[in-house]
Amino acid sequence: MNIFRIEITKEDPLRYISHLDYANLLQRAIRRAGLPAAYSEGFNPHMKVSFASALAVGVTADGEYADIELTKNICQPDFFDRLKNVLPDGMQLISAKQIGDGRHQSMNALADAAFYEIKLPDIADSSELQIAVDKFNTAPSIIFMREKLGKGAKKGHIVKKEINIKDFLLSELNCDNEENTITVTIKVSPLGSIKPAEMIRALQENYLPSLDSNSALINRKTLSANGKSLMEFCQTIS
């Protein structure tokens, strides 16, 4: 078993595609590259590719992480070049690393923090942003009403759930008034998380009514485990 861990981007041309479509795009690229991908057994074979996290539609990333299992051993430079040459616009291969053939803890379980940079649309008075961010940071809790289209028995209904944004933040909001950007670290956990877009909506609803939150451009700068990049964090389960 040969597994490569890769770090790839999701840039502007791919901003509006879903995680599933992004995964499909990578799998088709692997096939175009002619890499000897491993497939699951059974009636409906699936390529053995696993991702670290699901990015929302509308969010770009400087680093997405995926583990690709191959059936044959190929050298890193060969793997790197073959994949790099067939990736679509907006998907660049940053690094690839062979992570041995032991069993690995899934990256999904490993990742615990995501660092985001959010570019806001121009606001008439930039001090207004600083004031809103300060209020946001000092508030003990920020309640947000999450609305989702129901599934199964609740299909056709909107399911509402109250969440406290603050439960999911690992840092304060930092705002750069010059660049009109906000940076923040959000907790990632198997038990759930929040979307950065929800946090921006909460900021707008509570403290910055003039903000056009639909125009915010969200980019995930890093995804990390225990303070380290996922590329470095290849923990083998013995």
Binding site: R15, Y16, I17, V57, P88, P121, S215
Partner: peptide, 21 residues
């Protein structure tokens, strides 16, 4: 197309092109 337009519609990738090939 501004983000405000694309973020407000269902399946924005219908309108942004750039596909492989």
């Amino acid at each position: 197309l501004s983000p405000a337009v694309l973020q407000a519609v269902n399946k924005p990738a219908r309108y942004t092109g750039g596909e492989v090939n």
